[in-house]
Simulated scan of single mutants.
Amino acid sequence: MKKLFYITLLIALPLSLAACQSKSTTGSSQEKSSSSKVAQKDSSDKQASRSSKSESSSSSEEKNSSSSEVTIATRDMSAIGIMTYQEQFPSDDLQKEPNLGLTKGAQFLIGVSSVSELAYNLDGDSVVWYTKENDNSKPESEKELSVKHTMSLAELEAKHYSTAAQKSLVDALVQKISIVDNDTSSNSDEESSDDYEDTDATDTDNEDTDNYDTEDDNEDVNTNEDTTDDYDE
């Protein structure tokens, strides 16, 4: 009986050891496989993050490039005034306005009657304009242009001067608009030019007068010499 027990024990012991070793190897293999999967996932996440950053940087560069390539189609103040008026009063049909007028000065004024509807000027690549104050206690003609608005020229043109039809309309209104020039600097230049011309004319007159007086003196001298010669004879 004892022999049988020992024999069974000798047979079972190696089998148990082999089973334990197999389990240990399997567990180690599973751990290695799990670690490998984690490492692969981390690497994949890093690559995805780098790719996302690269795409974001590329998109930002494209936006900056496109914004730097924006060009202004026109800086004609009449055209800018008409586009600004269209922006502020979109329901007005300027083609039907017989009294569309523009006044040039320190600020440009534009309106459809003797009363200007808005004042505008350029500030770099933007247009700044002012509309009438919201004071219902004043008559329309006494309201000041004090409400400020600002828009980039690129945006203004995109809205009112981008299609062929829009350009044709604005260009036609530029030809139609009545312009009054109240620019004091240009008037001063013209007055200075007139004064200069007047001075030149005065100097010329003075020179003519001097020449005339000289001729008279010469004639008097010649007459005196003739009289002396007659007396000597």
Results as ranks from 00 to 15, higher is better:
E144A: 11
M83D: 02
I80F: 02
L169V: 06
N222I: 05
V70D: 12
T199V: 13
K138G: 05
N224P: 00
D194A: 15
K96P: 01
V38P: 06
A106S: 13
E61Q: 09
V147Q: 01
E225P: 01
P14T: 05
I177Y: 02
S192I: 11
P139M: 04
Y130I: 06
E55W: 09
E155Y: 03
K148H: 04
Q95T: 10
D226F: 02
S34Q: 15
L173R: 00
S24G: 06
T204V: 02
S192K: 05
T25R: 09
Q86I: 01
N206C: 08
K63Y: 12
L156I: 00
M83S: 05
S162H: 12
V170F: 07
A172G: 10
W129H: 03
H160Q: 04
L169C: 00
A73G: 01
Q21E: 14
L94M: 06
W129F: 10
D123W: 07
E233L: 12
E215W: 02
A106H: 09
S114W: 00
P139V: 11
D198I: 06
V38H: 07
A73V: 06
G81L: 04
E62R: 02
K3L: 09
Q166Y: 07
Y130V: 01
N134M: 06
S35Q: 14
L173Q: 01
Q95G: 13
L9Q: 08
G81H: 04
S56W: 07
D92Q: 07
T71V: 11
H149L: 04
K63I: 13
T209W: 11
N99P: 00
G27M: 15
Q175A: 11
L156E: 05
G27E: 15
E142Q: 14
S54D: 08
Q166R: 04
T131K: 05
T228E: 12
L156W: 03
E61G: 07
K159Q: 10
T202S: 14
S22N: 13
S168P: 00
A79N: 01
T209Q: 08
N218E: 13
S33M: 14
I80V: 12
A18C: 10
E142K: 14
Y85W: 07
D195A: 12
N211A: 15
A18G: 14
A106V: 08
D45T: 09
A19M: 13
T184A: 14
T184C: 01
T25M: 10
V70E: 12
D181Q: 01
A39F: 10
G81Y: 04
M151T: 02
S51K: 11
E142G: 03
V174W: 00
S78A: 14
S59T: 09
